[in-house]
């Protein structure tokens, strides 16, 4: 292996990770909005839009900018609002800005696609996201993210940056799955007594559809649908691409490859954190997780994923841990 392909600038590693993360985040947000619109209705038949704000822990910023959690406000906040760093438009813009820094390493096709995707999003208006259009817009965003994934798979040079890119993507995907489990928690918290009722099942059904997991779940569980089985599937299934188990094992594998294929010595602590999290996951069954509390366990997983991210950035890229461990706002601002 030549020196040129062996060395990777620390800053590039970080940008690759965030590029993977932001696109994954945009895709998941589109999934959540779509599914909330079309499948999730509470016992009174109305959609609970505030739950999306809650699951992203965005209440403070949302309440500052909007008076009520109406359809129009929440969808605007998460799709079009450029001032909201957790909106889809901001995520794609951040992906593009990280790509701009990483551009020396990206394929022309990757860059061109991100450019066009970002340009297309910036033409969207409130008209384009009204209730009758949301399904189409969500599908477009999801498909553009998938197109990015496909172009990347087929054209991105498989040096270290590929593994950092995948680390970002897989950490975000696992994080989003924990949040999806949590949305359920938020929706059902006020009415525990309805567990198992028809409405409840339709919500778990919606949850699975949002991660393209309904049919996969049916292959494992041809009959019935209990909250416990769905939660267990999303947490423990080793064949489902968006399960926590799959995510952690892929993260582990990327960290190993960075060390074995590229001779890097960093990443010890990150791997220990991954091991610890996998051990915690394996010590549970669907029963014990529900008894322990789904919300609490999701919370634990999110904290671990944050810690893994912080540790990768510190050890490979030389970034000191951020004080605000939640959002990676302003990751593109390397130029100070």
């Amino acid at each position: 292996m030549s020196t040129a392909t062996k060395l990777l600038l620390a800053r590039y590693a970080d940008c690759a990770m965030w590029l993977g993360r932001y696109i994954e985040r945009a895709e998941n947000l589109a999934r959540i909005l779509d599914v909330n619109m079309h499948f999730s209705r509470d016992a009174r038949g109305s959609q609970n839009w505030r739950s999306i704000v809650q699951l992203n822990a965005d209440e403070k910023r949302f309440d500052k900018a909007y008076d009520v959690a109406s359809y129009a406000n929440v969808v605007n906040f998460y799709v079009l609002d450029r001032d909201n760093p957790t909106s889809i438009i901001s995520a794609v813009r951040s992906a593009k800005e990280n790509a701009r820094s990483l551009r020396p390493l990206l394929s022309t096709e990757m860059w061109q696609h991100l450019n066009m995707f970002n340009n297309h999003l910036s033409t969207l208006s409130a008209e384009d996201v009204k209730p009758s259009e949301l399904a189409r817009v969500s599908a477009m965003i999801k498909e553009q993210c998938q197109l990015h994934t496909g172009i990347t798979e087929g054209t991105f040079f498989r040096d270290q940056s590929w593994h950092f890119y995948l680390l970002g993507k897989r950490i975000e995907r696992a994080d989003q799955t924990t949040r999806l489990l949590d949305i359920k928690y938020h929706l059902l918290l006020p009415m525990d007594q309805t567990v198992g009722s028809p409405v409840d099942v339709s919500q778990w059904n919606a949850l699975l559809r949002s991660v393209a997991g309904y049919h996969a779940f049916r292959r494992e569980h041809p009959r019935g649908m209990s909250p416990k089985a769905v939660a267990g599937f999303l947490l423990f299934n080793s064949a489902f691409p968006r399960s926590i188990w799959t995510g952690l094992s892929e993260i582990d594998s990327n960290l190993h490859r960075l060390r074995s294929d590229f001779g890097l010595r960093a990443g010890n602590l990150a791997m220990e954190l991954v091991d610890e999290t996998r051990a915690a996951l394996e010590s549970h069954t669907p029963d014990t997780v529900v008894n322990f509390g789904l919300h609490e366990f999701s919370d634990y997983l999110q904290r671990q994923l944050n810690a893994i991210t912080t540790e990768i950035r510190r050890d490979f890229c030389g970034f000191e841990p951020m004080t605000d461990s939640g959002m990676p706002d302003g990751q593109m601002q390397h130029q100070d």
């Binding site: 060395l7 990777l8 620390a10 800053r11 590693a13 950092f164 010595r265």
Partner: peptide, 15 residues
């Protein structure tokens, strides 16, 4: 991305 030590220039990499 660059740093100078003992009058030699280095770049910061993941290694």
């Amino acid at each position: 991305d660059l740093v100078v030590e003992n009058d030699h220039v280095f770049m910061k990499t993941t290694a």
